[in-house]
């Protein structure tokens, strides 16, 4: 089922910016959630991490950004390297300073702060560099003109789309090299989802920011990403170039909601799942 990366056309020459090797994550010392996940993200790429509810997408992103500890999760096996260096033991603060920042699922804006104050918190690591921060703020407003209009509203009272923009804009303020973007489409109207993905794409192209994207919305994600991994109960069950995945019968059937030419009966589907479980 797994397509070799080379076959999928991923650049083999340069070493990946981020590589996650065989990580295992346990919550509360007992709940094993990731059972050996490996993935790599090339510099300047957009890579999608796909899968159903509870597959482990957010957990994977949080193990990279080291936000697991707050939820009493722990990476117990495997390694994570970024730019050739191990980053498993770094604090989120150190990671943000190195350019790795996560935009969490559900936006997590600071509700009592204004939109602009939210954006400014993203520049915390840049301390008192006023000039740079003012420039970056204008840049964020250029990407999200809507935020400029809402700059002095309390973030808690803005719409879901505006909060998503605020969360992405806030991350941009840190001048990231890599954004771990968790489910930006969540709860947004299709048109808005499209708009946000367009902006993410231009951030990727113009700022050269590498993106690792976790999404349930496989359809949109595979249109914007160049490569994808599919996660099921804590394991990577499939990976490949975005086009390859989009045209794969199983992906069509399970994640894109296409019938796969009526080839499979419901029983086959169940068998497929059972096989997965056995293999896993």
């Amino acid at each position: 089922m797994t397509l070799a990366p080379s076959q999928a056309g991923q650049a083999e020459t340069a070493p990946p910016l981020l590589s996650v090797t065989n990580i295992e994550v346990i919550y509360n010392h007992v709940i094993l959630v990731l059972k050996g996940v490996s993935l790599s993200v090339p510099e300047g790429g957009i890579v999608a991490l796909l899968g159903a509810n509870g597959a482990g997408k957010s957990t994977t992103l949080k193990s990279i950004s080291n936000l697991l500890r707050v939820e009493r999760g722990e990476v117990t096996k495997g390694s994570i390297t970024y730019g050739g260096e191990r980053i498993d033991q770094l604090t989120p603060n150190e990671l943000v300073r190195r350019g790795v920042i996560q935009v969490m699922e559900g936006r997590h804006c600071f509700g009592h702060l204004t939109v602009e104050e939210n954006l400014l918190t993203g520049a915390f690591i840049h301390g008192g560099k006023r000039r740079q921060i003012a420039e970056d703020l204008e840049k964020v407003y250029a990407y999200f003109p809507r935020l400029k209009e809402r700059r002095s509203s309390q973030a808690g009272y803005t719409s879901g789309g505006e909060q998503q923009m605020t969360a992405i804009g806030r991350a941009l303020m840190s001048r990231p090299k890599m954004i771990l973007l968790d489910e930006p489409s969540m709860g947004l109207a299709p048109q808005l989802v499209e708009q946000i993905f367009e902006i993410v794409k231009s951030i990727n192209e113009q700022e050269g920011v590498t993106i690792l994207l976790a999404e349930q919305n496989t359809n949109v994600a595979l249109r914007y990403a160049r490569y994808g991994y599919i996660l099921e109960s804590g394991r990577v069950v499939m990976e490949g170039a975005a086009d390859t995945l989009r045209n794969n019968e199983d992906v069509k059937e399970f994640y894109l909601g296409l019938g796969g030419e009526g080839r499979r009966s419901f029983r086959d589907v169940k068998q497929y799942r059972r096989r997965k479980r056995w293999l896993g």
């Binding site: 950004s65 936000l67 707050v70 939820e71 604090t91 989120p92 603060n93 990671l95 943000v96 300073r97 920042i101 996560q102 935009v103 969490m104 997590h108 804006c109 600071f110 509700g111 009592h112 702060l113 104050e117 939210n118 400014l120 918190t121 993203g122 915390f124 690591i125 301390g127 008192g128 806030r170 991350a171 840190s174």
Partner: peptide, 23 residues
């Protein structure tokens, strides 16, 4: 102030504050 803002951010959402690099 920047630190005051960070304090309010932490009060609102610890995890999000950490995620943007506030120690």
């Amino acid at each position: 102030t920047r630190v005051g803002r960070a304090l309010r951010a932490v009060a609102d959402d610890h995890q999000a504050a950490q995620s943007v690099g506030i120690p």
